[in-house]
Design a protein around this nucleic acid. Structure first.
Length: 279
DNA sequence: GTCCAGGCTCTTT
DNA sequence: AAAGAGCATGGA
């Protein structure tokens, strides 16, 4: 892949970068498609992505942020090779998303988003988070930024219910309060080892094993986790017949894929969604 | 109408 | 520790 950096843009040629796959694989929910281009909102930053036949162009006032956000230094072909070393029969699961990349997302946006995600579907998750951005996020041009913790400080449980968050409203309310405490300062969290960080995330309201793993992976770039949701539970049967709980399924996979667990999970998830789904 | 979605909390064994 | 009930909402 050829990367050309300019002041406010990055141009990608010889593309192993598929913006549609990257955004529409359930790792981020705050993005919008408009006439063949995408707008991505990460925290208080915006990126516009346009795709041509020969290249993909990223545009942002903070393009360095999005260079990191889109994980452009990482070689995903190497990751696939490493996964195959660990589990040679894995190749067919790459079919669901050949050019996905794992976004390095804002920790708090990831936490809020995945609390909303639990027992929910992507379409409605997007809707709830968009409404939340409309109501509590700052408006920049035509785009609503993702709400900051401070902007959510005075949100009530009823406010979240009005957004359509349902019974997760109380989780959001409680967790926002906690996230504003010293224990959850960004630098503190980032400095914790994965196990300690997970423990702290699990203390939040509305954060269980699966959501914590997603936050660790998408929000903190910890790759030795394997989030188990309803799709992965089904996919597990391709690997092993023994009946296991979700937590056991997760450690079954982490034992196999080690530091590549998160990536392997993402490929399996995409395979289940896009190759095994009747739609 | 029932089942399901990137599951969690709380209660009961 | 493990298993089960209950949970808001909207689409299939």
């Amino acid at each position: 892949m050829e990367i050309k950096r300019e002041k406010n843009s990055i141009i990608l040629k010889n593309i192993d970068f598929d913006i549609k796959e990257i955004l529409e694989c359930g790792q981020i929910f705050s993005f919008y498609e408009e006439n063949n281009s995408y707008i991505v909102v990460s925290s208080d930053k915006i990126c516009k992505i346009t795709k041509d036949e020969n290249f993909t162009k990223l545009e942002s006032d903070d393009i360095n942020y999005f260079y990191n956000f889109f994980d452009l230094d990482t070689d995903y072909e190497k990751i696939k090779k490493e996964i195959l070393k660990l589990y040679p029969n894995f190749f067919k699961f790459f079919e669901g998303g050949k050019n996905i990349r794992i976004l390095r997302q804002d920790p708090y946006q990831t936490i809020i988003s995945f609390i909303v995600s639990s027992n929910n579907n992507i379409k409605r998750i997007k809707k709830i988070l968009f409404s939340m951005s409309q109501k509590f996020g700052e408006k920049q041009g035509e785009i609503y930024l993702f709400p900051t913790l401070l902007s959510l400080k005075n949100a009530s449980i009823q406010d979240y219910k009005d957004l359509g968050a349902g019974y997760r409203s109380e989780y959001l309310y409680k967790s926002v309060k906690m996230l504003l405490e010293k224990d959850y300062e960004e630098e503190t969290l980032k400095s914790l080892p994965t196990k300690e960080l997970k423990k702290r995330l699990l203390n939040l309201s509305g954060v269980g094993e699966k959501v914590a793993d997603c936050i660790l992976f998408f929000g903190f770039n910890r790759t030795d986790v394997f989030p188990v949701d309803t799709w992965i539970r089904k996919g597990y049967s391709y690997f092993c017949e023994k009946k296991r709980s979700d937590k056991e399924i997760s450690s079954y996979f982490v034992d196999i894929f080690k530091n590549y667990s998160g990536y392997a999970q993402q490929y399996l998830y995409n395979y289940m969604i896009f190759c095994k789904n009747p739609n």
